[in-house]
C-alpha cells in the first residue's frame, strides 16, 4: 500500500542523509522523495512516498518524529489532500506525429518545452493517474528519456503545514 508523508525538517546539511539513512537502516521503502525549502527558509519540506502495511507505516511515522531535526511529520492517510507530480518526457516526433502529440499535450494541459528535428520534450503535471494515462498514450511513439520529480502533497481546504514546534508535554526538558 502506497502512502504519502510530508516531513518538515530543519534546513541544515546532513538532514537528508539522516532521513534516507533511517529508511535504509530499518528496511523501509522510499518510492520517491522530494525536498525543497518552505516559506520559512530555515525549514524544508520532504514529501516521501513509501509502501508498507499499517504497522510499518506507524513505525515510519514514529521513527521520523524521533529524529532530532524533524519538526513535524504529516501523515496524509486520514486527510483529504492534493498531490501533484511533474514529468519531463522526451518523445520521438516526426512530421507524421507532431500534430497528434501537440493535441495530446493540449488535452492534458502540458507544455512542449524543447524541440529538436526528431524529438519533443514535454512537461506535464498532474496526479499519478493522469501521468500514467499520458505516458501510456505517448509510449507507442517512442519515449527517449523520462524524468519525474516525485509527488508533492498538501492538505485540501484551509489546513496548512503549520510549522508549530513539537510541544513539550510536561517536564523540564532536562530528564
Amino acid at each position: 500500500m502506497k502512502h504519502t508523508i510530508s516531513v518538515l525538517v530543519e534546513n541544515e546539511f546532513g538532514v537528508l542523509s539522516r532521513i534516507s539513512g533511517l529508511f535504509s537502516g530499518r528496511g523501509f521503502n522510499i518510492e520517491s522523495l522530494c525536498v525543497a525549502e518552505t516559506l520559512d527558509p530555515t525549514i524544508s519540506t520532504m514529501t516521501i512516498v513509501t509502501t508498507g502495511d499499517d504497522m510499518i507505516l506507524e513505525q515510519i511515522l514514529k521513527q521520523l518524529n524521533k529524529l532530532i531535526n524533524v519538526i513535524k511529520v504529516i501523515d496524509f492517510r486520514d486527510t483529504d489532500y492534493v498531490s501533484r507530480e511533474m514529468v519531463l518526457v522526451k518523445v520521438n516526433a516526426d512530421e507524421k506525429t507532431r500534430a497528434e502529440i501537440l493535441r495530446m499535450v493540449e488535452i492534458f494541459r502540458g507544455k512542449i518545452i524543447d524541440v529538436s528535428p526528431r524529438t519533443y520534450t514535454i512537461m506535464i503535471t498532474g496526479d499519478e493517474e493522469k501521468l500514467k494515462a499520458f505516458l501510456a498514450l505517448v509510449r507507442p511513439l517512442g519515449i527517449k528519456d523520462l524524468v519525474r520529480t516525485g509527488p508533492v502533497a498538501m492538505a485540501r481546504g484551509d489546513k496548512t503545514l503549520k510549522t508549530k514546534e513539537k510541544q513539550p508535554k510536561g517536564g523540564n526538558g532536562d530528564g
Binding site: 519538526i71 514546534e165 513539537k166 508535554k169 510536561g170 517536564g171 526538558g173 530528564g175
Partner: peptide, 12 residues
C-alpha cells in the same frame, strides 16, 4: 538554556 524546536520529549 537549550531550545531545540524539533526536539521535545513527552514526559507525562
Amino acid at each position: 538554556k537549550v531550545h531545540i524546536r524539533s526536539y521535545q520529549p513527552t514526559y507525562f
